[in-house]
Design a protein around this nucleic acid. Structure first.
Lengths: 260, 260
DNA sequence: AAATAAATATCGTGA
DNA sequence: TCACGATGTTTATTT
C-alpha cells in the first residue's frame, strides 16, 4: 500500500502514472469534474473522493448518497498530467465515446492498493432462485399446476415459467422477486398476448410478493391473474432446493428484527 | 483528515466509534461480508475497500467493476465492536429491514474525511431536457405539431407530451433519451390505449434516438409511430433553450474523438 | 454486436 | 407513504 499526503502536482502525477491501471488508486481532493458522452455534466469545485480501479472503473463520490456523482464503467483508459499547474485526471471510454475530466485544485491524499480477493458473492433470493423453487414446488403457483418450461423463448423475450393447470389449460407465469407494478403487468400481458395469438386459450399469472392496485386492475381487466408469494415463507424451501454451498445463511445469520 | 495504519482491533473500534456518522470513513482490510434483507448474500474472506458515509450509506468495493459487491443505501445506522478479537462493522436499515455485517480479519487502513462540498451536479441531456426542447421546437416531432400538455396524468402515469397534429388529431408522444426497446413501446401503448378508450382517435409516437426492430414492429402492428431524434443535432438547440448556467459545456469541452 | 430483462437496482416526483 | 418512471442506469444472458 503506497500513499502520499498533500503532494505537489508533479509528485501526484508521478504517483498516478506509476499506479493507474495497476493498483486501485484513491484520490482525495478539491476538484472540478466534467463529463461528456451519453449526456453532459459539470460539477463545480468541491472536495470529493475519487476511486480509479485497475479495470478502468472510475468513481467520484461525495459525502452523500450511494451513487457516485460522476463515474465511468469498466474499460476506461486513465491518464494524469499537470495542466496550468494543476493535476488533471482524464478517463476515456469508447462505445459510446465518453470522457470524464477531473481538475484537481488541491490534492489532499493519494492511496494505491493491491486488493487480493478471489471470492465471488453468493446471493440467494433472486428471481432465478424463485424460478428454481417453483419448478420443484409447482403447487406454490396453484394446486395442480405443472411446469412444462422455463425461460422459454417465444419471439418476444423469454417467459419465466410455462405450464399447465389442473384442467390442462396452458399457463404463462411471470415472476418478480419484488412487489410488482404496471410495467411488470405489461410484461406478462405481452407474453400472454403472444401465446394466445399462437395457441388459443392461455392463462396469465403474475407471481410476486405484492402487486400494486393499478397493476392488479390492469391485469384483471384483461383476464389475467395475480398470485402473491411471501419470501419469508418460501426461503426455507429455497434453501432446501439450492446446492449446499449456498445453504449457509439460514441459521447462523438470523434476519434482523422487523420490529425496528 | 484522520488516519490509522494497521491498527489493533481496539484502536480501530475507538476510531470508528468516534468517526462513524460524522466523517466519511474508509476501511481497507481483509474481511467477510454477510447481507440479509431484500435478499441474502455471503462473501468469503478477501481484501476490500469499505466506505461508510455520514448519511448512513455503505459501500463495499472490490478491485473490479463499478458496482459495490455489498452496499446499503442512505439511512443505515452503523456500529463497530470487537467480537472474538475481530473488528465487526454492522450496518442496519429499516423499511425494509436490512443488515450488513462485516467481520474484519485484518484492518490495514482507516481514514476519516470531512468533505466540504456544496455543489450540485449540472446535467444536460436528460429526457426532461428533450421535453423542454420539443415544447420550444414542436416541429421536431413533426411539421404542424402543437404541444398542448406535458407530463399530463392520465390515470396510468404521466404522458411525456400531448398535442395536436396538423389536422387537429390528438397525439401522445413518449420520449426516450436513449435507444428505445420493447418496454418503452409498451409504455406508449398503455397511454395510447387509455386515451383512445376515453377520447377516440389518438395517434401515438415514440420519439427516441433509435428504436429496436422488435419495438418498431410492435408499434406498427398497433397503429403507432416512431420518430427518431439525433442528440448531436438537437444538442445545439437545447443549449439555446436551457438557462445560462447550464449552457457552458459546448465550446470549451468538445466531444471525444469518435474514431478512438 | 444488439437486444432483452433483472437488480438487494437507486433516485426523484407527485398524489 | 406509496407508486410510478427515469437513469450518463449496470450487468448478465442470449441471439
Amino acid at each position: 500500500m503506497r500513499s502520499l499526503t498533500a503532494p505537489d502536482p508533479e509528485a501526484a502525477v508521478a504517483f498516478l502514472k506509476a499506479e493507474l491501471h495497476r493498483s486501485l488508486v484513491q484520490v482525495v481532493g478539491l476538484c472540478e469534474v466534467r463529463y461528456q458522452g451519453r449526456a453532459q455534466s459539470s460539477l463545480s469545485l468541491g472536495e470529493r473522493l475519487i476511486l480509479l480501479k485497475p479495470d478502468g472503473t472510475l468513481l467520484v463520490h461525495t459525502a452523500r448518497k450511494i451513487k457516485p456523482v460522476n463515474w465511468q464503467p469498466p474499460g476506461a483508459r486513465f491518464s494524469a498530467a499537470v495542466e496550468e499547474g494543476r493535476v488533471v485526471l482524464t478517463s476515456q471510454r469508447g462505445e459510446p465515446a465518453e470522457l470524464v475530466r477531473i481538475a484537481l485544485h488541491e490534492t489532499q491524499a493519494l492511496l494505491a492498493l493491491r486488493l487480493k480477493d478471489d471470492e465471488a458473492l453468493s446471493l440467494v433470493g433472486t428471481e432465478a432462485d424463485l424460478g428454481k423453487l417453483l419448478v420443484k414446488h409447482p403447487h406454490l403457483v396453484e394446486p395442480g399446476f405443472q411446469v412444462t418450461g422455463r425461460e422459454r423463448a417465444n419471439g418476444r423475450g423469454p417467459m419465466d415459467l410455462v405450464g399447465l393447470d389442473a384442467k390442462g389449460v396452458r399457463v404463462v407465469v411471470e415472476l418478480k422477486r419484488r412487489p410488482a407494478g404496471l410495467n411488470d403487468a405489461e410484461q406478462l400481458r405481452r407474453y400472454v398476448e403472444r401465446e394466445r395469438a399462437a395457441k388459443g386459450d392461455v392463462r396469465g399469472i403474475l407471481l410476486a410478493p405484492g402487486v400494486s392496485d393499478a397493476a392488479r386492475r390492469y391485469l384483471q381487466e384483461r383476464g389475467m391473474e395475480v398470485r402473491e408469494v411471501d419470501w419469508d415463507k418460501v426461503l426455507p424451501l429455497l434453501h432446501q432446493v439450492l446446492p449446499a454451498g449456498q445453504r449457509t445463511l439460514d441459521a447462523r445469520f438470523p434476519p434482523p428484527d422487523r420490529g425496528a
